[in-house]
Simulated assay, not measured.
Amino acid sequence: MPIRRESFLAHVQERGEYETTEEADLAARVVLALLGAHLVGTVRAEPAARLPETYALILLNPLPASEPLSPDRFARATAAWIEGATEKTALWDIGAVLSTAAATAGDTLTREILLQLPHGYDLLFGHPKPA
């Protein structure tokens, strides 16, 4: 069963320390759209099924990525889509959204997602790989 929109946004807002739900919503929309462009098949469909409908549709219907973005390029792309953001603040936005998405998806599905992404995304999800 998908998490409720209000609950999802409350977690993103708390983790990102956003003043408003609108800020949390914008971060969620941008980060999930960029993430969706990097996932395929059930690894995109299964986490989408656990998200609120608004965010599930964003994850499921992205513009396809022409190439996988490294974590640094993912941060730059996020910053480019959020007015006034820098790469540093974009990393904060990414962490707030992806850690919430990971908590929603669960550890097994999060590991499957990370297998489709370039090296280094584990840190963006708040799931660093053991050394």
Rank of each mutant, 00 (worst) to 15 (best):
M1F: 08
T104F: 00
L60S: 09
G36M: 13
Q116K: 11
S7E: 14
E67K: 15
E22K: 09
V97M: 00
H11T: 10
L26M: 10
L109N: 05
Y121A: 03
A49I: 09
P62S: 10
R50P: 04
A33F: 03
T108Q: 11
E23Q: 13
A85C: 07
A48F: 12
K88W: 01
S99G: 02
P130V: 06
A96C: 05
L39A: 12
R50I: 09
Q13F: 06
E46T: 12
L59V: 05
A28L: 13
A105N: 06
A102S: 12
Q13M: 10
R73V: 12
K129T: 06
T104D: 02
R29S: 14
L26S: 08
V12A: 02
P47C: 12
P130E: 12
Y55D: 07
T20S: 15
P68S: 09
A33Y: 05
K88N: 03
P128T: 02
V97S: 06
T100E: 02
M1H: 08
E17K: 13
A80D: 15
A65Q: 06
R44Q: 11
A96T: 03
G106H: 00
T108G: 00
L117M: 01
R76N: 11
S99R: 11
P47L: 06
V12T: 00
I94H: 04
A80Q: 13
A75C: 04
H38Y: 05
S99I: 05
F8Q: 07
P71E: 10
A85M: 03
T100G: 02
T20I: 09
N61F: 15
G120D: 03
L26V: 13
T86A: 08
L123F: 03
K129M: 00
G36D: 09
A48R: 03
P47G: 05
A101M: 14
L34V: 11
L124E: 06
D72Y: 09
P128F: 06
G120R: 01
I82Y: 10
T100S: 13
T20V: 04
Y18F: 13
R4I: 00
M1E: 12
A85R: 11
E17W: 07
P130R: 09
H119T: 15
E46D: 15
D25T: 15
E67F: 13
E83I: 08
A45I: 11
P2R: 10
L115R: 14
G126N: 11
H127Q: 14
E112L: 12
R5Y: 03
N61D: 12
A28S: 15
T20L: 10
D122I: 05
A96H: 04
L117Y: 09
A10S: 12
V30N: 07
K88V: 15
D122C: 06
G84C: 07
A75E: 10
E83C: 07
V97G: 01
L59T: 01
L109A: 03
I82S: 02
A27V: 11
E23G: 01
G16P: 06
S99K: 05
Y121T: 04
R44G: 02
A105M: 09
A101K: 00
L32M: 13
H119D: 14
A105G: 07
I58H: 10
P128N: 06
R29K: 14
A96E: 05
S66N: 14
L59Y: 04
G41Q: 14
L123H: 01
D93T: 04
T78A: 13
